[in-house]
């Protein structure tokens, strides 16, 4: 499985650390208890294209949002979690 890091290019999955489902939205601090319970303990557990977070921990250390098909492991897209100015490699 290769993940196309937008900074480093396609790299082996062994360089990345999985950080879980990216569809989960952290509730407000004063949100009702039920919302927090859902956030902490429940997952949609998608079969098919799944938005998820990975960190390129063995490379540029960028945090990425990856869309990957959980039925085939095919990576559909990878982009920075926070888009913004990115230094060029070597600068």
């Amino acid at each position: 499985m290769l993940i196309p890091c937008p900074y480093c290019g396609p790299r082996d999955v062994g360089e990345f650390t999985y950080q879980g489902d990216a569809n989960r939205v952290r509730p407000a601090l004063d949100a009702p208890r039920a919302e927090w319970e859902t956030f902490v303990y429940e997952r949609v557990n998608t079969a098919g294209p799944h938005r998820e977070h990975w960190q390129h921990s063995g490379g540029c250390r960028a945090h990425l949002t990856v869309v990957r098909d959980t039925l085939t492991h095919h990576v559909l897209s990878a982009e920075f979690v926070r888009p913004g100015p990115v230094a060029k490699a070597g600068s």
């Binding site: 082996d12 999955v13 062994g14 999985y18 998820e52 959980t70 085939t72 492991h73």
Partner: peptide, 16 residues
Amino acid sequence: DGYNSYAQRGNLPVVE
């Protein structure tokens, strides 16, 4: 392997 999956096959880093 450590990431969500319904594919009944894994990847090489875990094999290694």
